[in-house]
């Protein structure tokens, strides 16, 4: 569902950028105005979304428990899977954010001759890690375009990324891994019948978009090269809030940039907000201390209750008959 729609949307974006530059020559629009607008949309959209979440209270104090709760001191409890303290929660969140711990648990349920079997299934975890980490490395690497002078650390990361001397200029592993991981996630989405069934255009679109960004980046580096000095001139001017778009960079760069801008704009209004959301997820970021501390619902409403008095009124004779003490005779 929606594969072709999403694919053609991305193609359309590419064409917009292509004609915008190659035919209309709108360098300032695509090089300055759209990137600024996209970045501002991204930041403000992100903030507003998180604030919107923040304005809703957390009435339930029910973190997901995946292990023994803390009870008595001589019973070992699961400090990470059923944390009772803030430090446990921090540990749980760190593992979740950096190691995708929940996905690491993943199983595959299957039927074998009438028996239900559970198999280990870590491909999603692996691909997810590869995707996110390579994306992070790609992002950090790109700081070389925004910072002048380029910090030594960025240069080091760049040379580690291009450790394998393949091609001229050296092939950067992170870009390739990103593209392959995105393609794997797409393959998984389409080949696994259950995942294909639940997928929406909103699932394919960001995959195609990111694959498009990676691909245009790879093309720009190895096949249809651009004037890298002018690119940096543009990016540094963006960072310095000066904003001047030199001509003659190469259209492929603007396609790359436009796809990134689309991603930035798309981000706050989509499932990509899981980046911020994971930190606010109440089933993960709360300690399981509801037996230690009393948590009161922040909008604690008045409710009608069945009082003891009413109860006694309903059953007074029966209670007396059973010898249960009553308040009123």
């Amino acid at each position: 569902m929606g594969i072709f729609f999403s694919f053609f949307m991305v193609i359309l974006l590419v064409l917009i950028a292509y004609f915008g530059i190659a035919a209309a020559g709108l360098h300032t629009l695509f090089g300055i105005i759209i990137p600024y607008a996209a970045f501002v949309t991204f930041c403000i959209g992100f903030l507003l979304k998180v604030i919107k979440w923040g304005r809703a209270p957390v009435p339930f104090h029910i973190p997901t428990t995946c292990g023994q709760q803390m009870t008595l001191p001589w019973i070992n409890y699961s400090k990470l899977d059923n944390p009772s303290s803030t430090s446990g929660v921090i540990g749980r969140m760190i593992l979740e954010v950096f190691c995708f711990r929940s996905l690491f648990r993943n199983l595959k349920t299957g039927l074998n001759n009438g028996n239900i079997s559970y198999a280990s299934d870590k491909w999603l975890w692996l691909a997810g890690l590869a995707f996110h980490y390579s994306f992070a490395v790609v992002l950090i690497r790109h700081l070389r375009f925004f910072l002048e002078p380029v910090p030594a650390l960025i240069n080091t990361i760049d040379s580690l990324d291009g450790f394998l001397q393949v091609g001229v200029p050296h092939f950067l592993l992170s870009g390739g891994v990103l593209l392959i991981a995105a393609l794997y996630l797409f393959f998984r989405r389409t080949s696994n019948p259950q995942v294909r069934y639940i997928s929406l255009p909103a699932d394919y679109f960001p995959l195609f978009l990111i694959a498009g960004i990676a691909l245009s980046g790879i093309i720009m580096r190895y096949i249809s090269k651009v004037d890298i000095i002018k690119v940096k001139q543009l990016t540094v001017s963006l960072a310095e809030l000066k904003g001047n778009a030199p001509e003659g960079i190469g259209t492929i760069f603007f396609i790359h940039l436009f796809l990134i801008c689309t991603l930035l704009v798309y981000f706050p209004f989509s499932k990509l907000m899981h980046m911020g959301g994971i930190f606010l997820s109440p089933t993960r970021n709360l300690p399981n201390d509801s037996r230690i501390k009393r948590h009161i619902n922040p909008w604690n409403p008045e409710v009608k209750v069945h009082t003891y008095e009413a109860y006694e009124n309903d059953f007074r004779e029966k209670m007396k008959g059973a010898g249960i003490p009553v308040e009123k005779e």
Binding site: P57, V58, P59, V195, M273, L280, W299
Partner: peptide, 20 residues
């Protein structure tokens, strides 16, 4: 009233880990 409800409506990526 429920941050969880709002959040769970917004951030699902439909990875399918919960499916089976």
């Amino acid at each position: 009233k429920y941050r969880s409800f709002q959040l769970f409506m917004d951030i699902c990526v439909r990875c399918g880990a919960c499916a089976d």
